[in-house]
Structures are given as C-alpha cells and as structure tokens.
Design a protein around this nucleic acid. Structure first.
Lengths: 186, 186
DNA sequence: ACCTGAACACCGTTCAAGT
DNA sequence: ACCTGAACACCGTTCAAGT
C-alpha cells in the first residue's frame, strides 16, 4: 500500500498538533518524520494555515465517520454511552488531546479559516449527540441541542483535566460522575 | 502607587499566557509591554521556566484568595452558584482562557516545575469546591471530591468551548445546562 | 510535479558595559 | 540594584531555483 507524501504529512501533522498544538506544529520535525525537507511541505500545502485547515478538516471528517459507524452498529443509548470512548482513545494514544480542544485554546492565534474548521468539529459532535439523544429518548427534541453542547463541553473538559495529570483513570472517573449526576444517561 | 518591574512583568506575562499559552509567551513582546528590554527580564527571572512557575503560582494564589473571599461573603450554596463567574470573567476580559486550561493543553511541552503549579491550581479549585459542596449539603463528604472534580472539569470545558466561538452567552447556557441536569445545584 | 539550498525573521539566552 | 546593546545559536518559514 503506497502512501503519498501529502497523506503522510497530514497524518504526522495531526499527531503533532494533538500533542503540541497549531503553534507547536513545526515543518522541520514534520519533514523529518515524513522523510523529506521542510521546504518540500510547501509544495503540498502553500502555507502553515493551509496545512492547519487540511488537518482540522480531515480531523472532523474522520470523527464524523467514527460517529456514523457508532450509531450504525448500536442502538442510540449504547452509542451515546460509547461517545466518551472517542476522547478516551486520544489519551490512550500518548496522552494526546482532541485537536480542536487544543485549537480552541489557541483561538487568538489561529488563522481565520482554521477557526472555521474547529467550529465545524464542534458542530459535527453537537449534531450527532443531539440526534442520538433524541432517538434514545433522553431529552425532547427542543432540548436536545442544548444538552448536546453541555455533554460535548464537559467531555472535552474531562479530557483536558485528565491530560494535565497523565491519568486516564481520572477521565473514567469524571465520565462516571457525569453519569451519576445525570448529565450523561446512566 | 508604585509598581515594580517584577510585578509588571508578572502581570503582563499572565495576560499573555492566558491568550497565547506558555509557548506563545515571548520575552520581547513582554518587555515591550512593560517598557524595558527583553534582556532585563532575566534580572528578575533567570529563565522562561522560572517565569512560567512564578506566573502559574501567582495565578493559583490569586484564585485561592478569590475563592476564600467568595466563601466568606456568602453562604455555601450562593458561593457555589457564583463559582462559574470566575471563569466567566476571563472570557469577559478579551476572551481569555484559564491559564491552567491552556497549560493543560500544552502539558507535553511544559517544564516539570510549571506542570506542578498547574496541578496545584486544579487542587485548589477541587479542594474549595469539595468543601463548599459538603457545607451546602449538596453531597455527602465521601462523594464531595469526586463531584468537585467533575464540576471543575465541566466548567473549564464550557469556558474552552465558549472561547472557540467568542461567545460568552454560550458559556452561560452551558452552565445553565449543568444546573438543569444536576451536575451543579440549581 | 516534486524537491531543495539558502536566506530571512524571530526566539531564548548570555554578557560586557552602562546608570 | 537595575537596565541595555549587541551578539549567539537555534529554529520556523519562505522563495527562487533546481530536477
């Protein structure tokens, strides 16, 4: 299976951005990883902003597919209960953060088109949660989006806190607390 | 009222770190703001790591005092209801993030002593919440710390999401949702 | 199309010198 | 004590030029 330089750059950039953010993303290390020179990256992505857009877009596209598969494979309530697992997997993978959480922190220094992709990531999550919450009968349709936002923000916060202690079990405990208090369905 | 250079550096560094993170903090811009030269900062802080430690420590010290005052001025339940206001004020101030949320994202690239201060910030918040939750009779003592962590993580997540849309009203809505679901007392 | 050398801008840091 | 100009080594970013 042949992997193009462009795809290899995209994959490496995603890993780096989840660990070091958009600001911490650097072309020399990225190039080393891919096996080309830093300047060569500019042939595939005209600027760092373009790379940032491509990485963030691919990120929400992949997440959207994961969420779709989750909803296909299971009933709404089961799918909902597995949702935090997506954020857990980032922590399992070298204590990495959701790309869009990191970029939300970096909001002030993000090129405008990158900001848009970050917001789309949130939109994709909220739309999916909203749909599944309604289908599972957890909330009425007119309250589902508000609840979806609350869940998304809280799960992202749990991931951030767990990362700051390199402690996945803390993430699990937080999610359990969200269930115990009623933010997430038990 | 005379402000020493050291205090001025500390204040400016805090503002910058809340907007751009530890990585985005740079001595030349900082010096400009204070009205001295970059090299002069080293007279007060021997290295960037030392400045980072000082900023983070001062940050949790100030927060600890704010929390103490909050608990002094009001009954436990009122104090608890005002807790999210601390995070709201950062957003009001040029859409800034909690310093320690930003540094949690940057965890991989933080000097070890800075990581410690970031964790202390979380500890201070959790200890205060735990105390107030118990005093307000919201939870039993043996469950208060778990609940305190959940609230801290969720409120930090709400601030992060609101920042990514530059929308304080989103923060307010999220907090209201936490109240409606029972994570926070109504 | 795909890649690179070399330059540019900027960073944290140091240090001898100035007040 | 407190500050600075100038320099250092390094690194991210860019572009004109190579194949």
């Amino acid at each position: 299976m042949m992997t193009s330089s462009k795809e290899a750059i995209l994959a490496a950039a995603r890993q780096s951005a989840q660990a070091h953010g958009y600001g911490g993303l650097n072309f020399r290390d990225l190039a080393d990883e891919v096996g080309i020179k830093a300047a060569s990256i500019y042939h595939h992505f005209p600027s760092k902003a373009d790379l940032g857009v491509a990485v963030a877009r691919r990120y929400w596209e992949d997440t959207k597919e994961d969420l779709y598969n989750l909803a296909q494979a299971d009933d709404p309530l089961s799918a909902l209960r597995q949702y935090p697992g997506i954020f857990r997997r980032s922590l399992e993978s070298a204590n990495k953060l959701c790309l869009c959480s990191f970029m939300s922190a970096e909001y002030d220094d993000l090129p405008e088109p990158v900001k848009k992709e970050v917001q789309t990531f949130a939109d994709v999550n909220v739309a999916w949660l909203s749909e599944v919450l309604t289908a599972a009968g957890v909330v009425s349709r007119n309250k589902s989006e508000e609840r979806a936002r609350a869940i998304f923000a809280a799960v992202a916060g749990a991931q951030l806190m767990a990362r700051s202690r390199s402690d996945i079990s803390l993430f699990d405990t937080l999610i359990e607390s969200y269930r115990a208090t009623g933010l997430l369905p038990a």
